[in-house]
Design a protein around this nucleic acid. Structure first.
Lengths: 143, 143
DNA sequence: GCAATAAAATTGATTGACTCAATATTTTTA
DNA sequence: TAAAAATATTGAGTCAATCAATTTTATTGC
């Protein structure tokens, strides 16, 4: 994706750190700030963790990236936005995968809205990923 | 609810702190640990925050209570469990309300499960609550 | 292009939720 | 009611994330 254009469209400064964060995030979706810092740091040796946090927060506010926060993990970020996709998280290894919702409408219309004006449905599916299913099976076989 | 019985059924010790946490949580759903500590502390002056955390974590593991973690807030807890209900969070004031899902099945069957075995669908609706809609309107009128 | 201005990056301190570990106390079991 | 097990208390410590002051970088107007 052309992130330079995306930033320009919103009158946001084009900085090396900002572009490096977006590039890192595109290559490593569902990354936390610390991981992104390490990746960006390889390219830009003078960068700081604070710059990563500032940019992530700012770009979330502008809808350029999305933040998810599964229980027990720090905030994770992704460049995939605007498609109302959801996430599957593994209870064992915390791996996160994207998934489209089977049916969009029900997720956007809660039965009782209590007068709230709803603008987003955030869905997290919890379960066990293939490799953790396998290792669990291995454990049982060891008995 | 008879929490003494719920705890006994699971062979968990009946302690004053534990029962006070459950009572506080029933009266104040979607509370965070710090708030629960304050409530319990009024009744049991010698209690500690650590005891609150230990009990919350332990009871979440045993399925007696449920933990939710909306973005930008610490973990919240509730005694309403086992009914797969969802939550609406206000973007302005962070208020949390319960809601039943309009249609349960789609929420439990993501289109692409990537081989995961899904056991829970956690849904958070984001929006603006009635009173924040109102105060937003007030602001606009002041112009 | 280059100075002036605005925005972002760096640095270091600080917050706040939460955990860890050692000791004391309470609860349960025999 | 004594022994064993579970829980509570205390204080230190961790880690993600934020705040604030200064320096650097990017943008704008000439």
């Amino acid at each position: 994706m052309d992130y330079e254009q995306i930033l320009k469209e919103r009158n946001l400064s084009l900085t090396s750190v900002r572009l490096a964060v977006l590039e890192a995030l595109e290559q490593h979706p569902h990354s936390e700030a610390g991981v992104l810092f390490k990746i960006v740091h390889k390219k830009i040796k003078t960068t700081s963790k604070q710059a990563i946090y500032n940019n992530l927060n700012m770009m979330v506010e502008h809808g350029i990236i999305r933040e998810i926060k599964p229980k027990g993990q720090p905030s994770l970020y992704e460049t995939k936005v605007g498609d109302n996709h959801h996430h599957i998280v593994c209870r064992s290894c915390q791996k996160v995968m994207d998934t489209d919702c089977h049916s969009l409408a029900p997720c956007l219309s809660p039965k009782i809205s209590h007068g709230f004006v709803i603008d987003e449905a955030e869905v997290t599916f919890w379960g066990t990923c293939p490799s953790c299913q396998k290792s669990k099976g291995d454990k049982n076989e060891q008995h």
